[in-house]
Amino acid sequence: MKFIYQTWWKVIAVLLVLSTFYTGLVFKAPRLPIIHETIRNLYFHVPMWMGMLTVFVVSVYFSIKYLQTGKEEHDLAAVECVNTGLLFYTLGLLTGMLWAKYTWGEFWSGDPKQNSAAIAFLLYCAYLVLRNSIDEEQKRAKISAIYNIFAFPIMIVLIFVLPRMTDSLHPGSGGNPAFGKYDLDNGMKVAFYPAMLGWSFIALWIATIRYRIRLVENKKNAIN
């Protein structure tokens, strides 16, 4: 638990993301039709999903931990990770919609990737609704931990597996080459990998801050 109180990794995260504003916007990118310069969204839209994934994985880890130990802190950590993950989820959806408007023609064209991302979003909203609907603390923690563990693999399948098996317009799906195979040349990796790593740690940072506030709130409520 000491890790979340240290500063060095937060500085590294900020520096990594800062570097992508230069490398991502100035360095050369492949010239592709329709996509044009929006290929640079790879450094800003995709890392949102990476950040979301990171905090959701941590959330599942703490849900499992809670079921093992029954400590309340683990439950609080799981909730705050989901809260932070939903922020990055929303940002990923909105930036994706904007990109879709100028490449596919519509903000929302019912593409399999968009639809299943919306379903998975509701899946995680249901997690928060479920939590708020149970008053008894231990029961709430246990049920929501189990729900969280099941929601995670379903989210993974909905967002990262199913759209790839059908005809989705999204890069990396249904016969569309992912940037990784043909287009992600070494020049793009210079900006892409730092962006992924940096945003992951920033997501983690936000989650730890929310967790720490939650801990203080919890302690106060216990005294009163």
Binding site: F21, H36, E37, T38, T90, L91, T95, L98
Partner: peptide, 15 residues
Amino acid sequence: KIYVVVATISIIFTG
């Protein structure tokens, strides 16, 4: 379409 990228960054920052 570079302004799509600019708008993307703005959305992220606003969020």
